[in-house]
C-alpha cells in the first residue's frame, strides 16, 4: 500500500548508540490456547518459525514469533504479508477458540544499536539487562519510563523495542536522550 507510512517514517538518531525507527513492520497479535489440539503445529507450520517457550522470541528469516503471555503471541512478518497471514491463521484455526488481529499499524518498532545499547534501555526500564539475566532470544514486556513496551536482544547484541504507535515520538525521544547521555559503564 503506497499510502502507508510508519509512525516515524524511519527516523534515526545516530550516535555511539544509534536509535532508529524501523519503518513498517508486520505484527499480528494472536490469542488462543497453546494447549489446544494442533494449535502449536498450525502456527509453526503457517508462520514457519518454531514455537517459542515462555518469554522467548524465535526467528526464522524475516519472521519471528514472540511469547507475550500464556495465551498470546506476537507474530512478526514483513508488513505486506500481515493481512494475508492474519487471514490464513484465522482460517486455519477456524475450529478453535482464538483471536487474531493485524496490529501492524498500531505499533512502532525501534532498533537500539551500539556498544552500550543495553544501558540505554536500563536507564528507562526496571529490568536487569545484564548479559547473564537478559539473553538473546528473551522478550521482556515492561515499562519504558512512562509507557508500555517490549524489548528483545538480537544475535548481534542490538536491541529491538516495540511500543504503541501513538507514543512512538515519546519512545524515540526517550531512547535517543538516553543514548545521547552516554554510557554508564556497567553492562
Amino acid at each position: 500500500m503506497s499510502n502507508a507510512v510508519s509512525a516515524l517514517n524511519g527516523k534515526v538518531a545516530a550516535g555511539d548508540v544509534t536509535v532508529a525507527e524501523m519503518g513498517l513492520q508486520g505484527m499480528i497479535s494472536l490469542r488462543g490456547s497453546f494447549d489446544a489440539e494442533d494449535f502449536v503445529a498450525t502456527i509453526t507450520h503457517l508462520v514457519g518459525v518454531d514455537f517459542p517457550d515462555v518469554r522467548q522470541i524465535v526467528s526464522n528469516g524475516e519472521r519471528s514469533v514472540a511469547w507475550m503471555s500464556p495465551d498470546e503471541l506476537l507474530i512478526l512478518c514483513p508488513y505486506d504479508q500481515a493481512v494475508s497471514l492474519t487471514a490464513q491463521i484465522a482460517e486455519a484455526l477456524a475450529e478453535q477458540h482464538f483471536l487474531v488481529a493485524n496490529v501492524s499499524d498500531a505499533r512502532a518498532l525501534f532498533s537500539v544499536t551500539g556498544p552500550f545499547a543495553a544501558e540505554v534501555l536500563a536507564k528507562v526500564a526496571p529490568v536487569d539487562f545484564s548479559a547473564s539475566a537478559f539473553a538473546v532470544g528473551e522478550v521482556r514486556r515492561t515499562r519504558l519510563a512512562q509507557v508500555a513496551g517490549a524489548v528483545w536482544k538480537e544475535q548481534d547484541g542490538s536491541l529491538r523495542v516495540v511500543c504503541f504507535r501513538s507514543v512512538a515520538h515519546y519512545t524515540f525521544d526517550l531512547l535517543a536522550t538516553s543514548a545521547k547521555a552516554g554510557p554508564v559503564g556497567v553492562l
Binding site: 515462555v54 518469554r55 503471555s69 500464556p70 526496571p126 521482556r140 514486556r141 515492561t142 515499562r143
Partner: peptide, 12 residues
Amino acid sequence: PYCGIQADETEL
C-alpha cells in the same frame, strides 16, 4: 506466576 518475572511494583 504467569510469565515468571519478578516484577517491579511500577510494572504492576
